[in-house]
Simulated assay, not measured.
Amino acid sequence: MKALRTNDDRFENLKDWPYSPNYLDDLKGYETLRAHYVDEGPKDAKHTFLCLHGEPSWSYLYRKMIPEFLDSGARVVAPDFFGFGRSDKPVDDADYTFHFHRNYLLAFIEKLDLKNITLVCQDWGGLLGLTLPFEMPDRFNRLIVMNTTIAVGRPAGDGFNAWRDYVANTPDFPVGGLMKRSTPILTDEEVSAYDAPFPDGSYKAGVRRFPQLVMTDPAMEGVNTSKKALKFWQEKWKGKSFMAIGMQDPVLGPLAMQWLNEQIKGCPSPMEIADGGHFVQEWGAEIARSALKHFGDI
């Protein structure tokens, strides 16, 4: 599998990002690729927060939540999907499939032997991450979920269709510019950090592919896996949950999240971030503190 690797110098001195990189290059099934992840806090902590980013961001998205989790005494692990962040970026669009990414996460969790996991997810971090606990239920005991869904082959609406078409027709679309438009509170330094993984369009196969992979038709790859996950959340989930919603998200906002709230057994009423958009982690310090208080960690 041909892949590109973003030079380290593009990640130097990023705003509010003091974390040393960690890499895996021997994951079963991914031996030719190097995966990057953040791993902070004590390895024997009572709780491990597994933070999964989405499209077109990377683990930098969690920079406002990570310090709050660490202050509670927890371990925080935040991997970059292949094609994003500091992880290697396969250049062939066809290499990106639902199970390519999902199996990576399963192998990653097993390699690090993560336990007592609090799953923290949004966007594709949820589309993929919410399908993991039914596969390894003994490893997960809590959930923080934001602006995402479980995709089981239903149409996603005009807003998502317009986004999918835009990406399909803009192969080198400006990632930082998109983040700024959807999250106007970002500074120029933060916009640059979101652009850092992508020196040019050849690094953006993952960015191009993720919107096309969302399961909006019942015949698409990942639907059956997601249906199993949905049943797990509806019937078998026994852990604590916390939901936060960026209310300005035009696609995965209040209506989509209310549906998801009803699917997660025991999920309490969501926290609403009135000014928050799709990338609601940009209001993450407040969300993290509220979730920790809900869980009784602080």
Score class of each variant (00 low, 15 high):
Met1Cys: 04
Met1His: 11
Leu4His: 06
Arg5Met: 07
Arg5Asn: 10
Thr6Glu: 09
Thr6Ala: 14
Asp9Lys: 06
Arg10Leu: 12
Arg10His: 13
Phe11His: 04
Phe11Gly: 01
Glu12Gly: 00
Glu12Cys: 01
Leu14Thr: 11
Trp17Asn: 02
Ser20Gly: 04
Asn22Phe: 12
Asp25Thr: 14
Leu27Glu: 08
Leu27Asn: 07
Leu27His: 11
Tyr30Cys: 03
Glu31Ser: 14
Arg34His: 02
Arg34Gly: 04
Val38Ile: 15
Lys43Ala: 14
Lys46Asp: 12
Thr48Ser: 05
Leu50Tyr: 14
Cys51His: 02
His53Gly: 05
His53Lys: 05
His53Phe: 07
Glu55Arg: 00
Trp58Tyr: 11
Tyr60Pro: 03
Leu61Phe: 09
Arg63Leu: 05
Lys64His: 09
Glu68Trp: 01
Phe69His: 01
Val76Ala: 05
Val77Pro: 04
Ala78Trp: 03
Pro79Asp: 10
Pro79Tyr: 07
Asp80Gly: 06
Asp80Thr: 08
Arg86Lys: 15
Ser87Lys: 03
Lys89Asn: 14
Phe98Thr: 09
Arg102Val: 09
Leu105Glu: 08
Leu106Glu: 06
Phe108His: 08
Phe108Asn: 06
Asp113Glu: 15
Lys115Phe: 10
Thr118Met: 08
Leu119Arg: 06
Val120Tyr: 07
Gln122Ala: 01
Asp123Gln: 03
Gly125Trp: 02
Leu127Ala: 11
Leu128Ser: 03
Leu128His: 04
Gly129Pro: 06
Gly129Met: 08
Gly129Lys: 03
Leu132Ala: 09
Phe134Gln: 11
Phe134Asn: 10
Arg139Gly: 03
Phe140Pro: 04
Asn141Phe: 05
Met146Trp: 00
Met146Cys: 07
Asn147Phe: 02
Thr148His: 04
Thr148Gln: 01
Asp165His: 13
Asp165Thr: 15
Tyr166Val: 14
Tyr166Arg: 14
Thr170Leu: 03
Pro171Thr: 08
Phe173Gly: 06
Phe173Lys: 08
Gly177Asn: 13
Gly177Met: 12
Leu178Arg: 11
Met179Tyr: 08
Ser182Arg: 08
Ser182Ala: 12
Ser182Gly: 05
Thr183Tyr: 03
Ile185Gln: 13
Asp188Ala: 15
Glu190Pro: 09
Ala193Cys: 13
Gly201Ile: 11
Ala205Ser: 15
Gly206Thr: 09
Val207Phe: 06
Arg208Cys: 12
Phe210Lys: 02
Pro211Leu: 09
Gln212Cys: 09
Gln212Met: 14
Ala219Trp: 05
Gly222Ile: 10
Gly222His: 10
Gly222Cys: 12
Gly222Tyr: 12
Asn224Tyr: 12
Thr225Cys: 13
Ser226Val: 10
Ser226Gly: 10
Lys228Arg: 15
Ala229Tyr: 07
Ala229Ile: 07
Leu230Phe: 05
Phe232Asn: 03
Phe232Tyr: 15
Trp233Glu: 08
Trp233Arg: 06
Lys238Phe: 05
Lys240Asp: 14
Lys240Leu: 14
Ala244Arg: 00
Ile245Leu: 02
Met247Cys: 02
Met247Ile: 00
Asp249Gln: 00
Gly253Gln: 01
Ala256Asp: 07
Trp259Asp: 04
Gly266His: 14
Pro268Thr: 12
Pro270Cys: 00
Ala274Ser: 08
Ala274Arg: 03
Ala274Pro: 00
Ala274Cys: 00
Asp275Gln: 07
Gly277Ser: 02
His278Gln: 08
Trp283Met: 00
Trp283His: 09
Ile287Glu: 00
Ser290Phe: 00
Leu292Ala: 02
His294Asp: 14
His294Asn: 14
Gly296Glu: 01
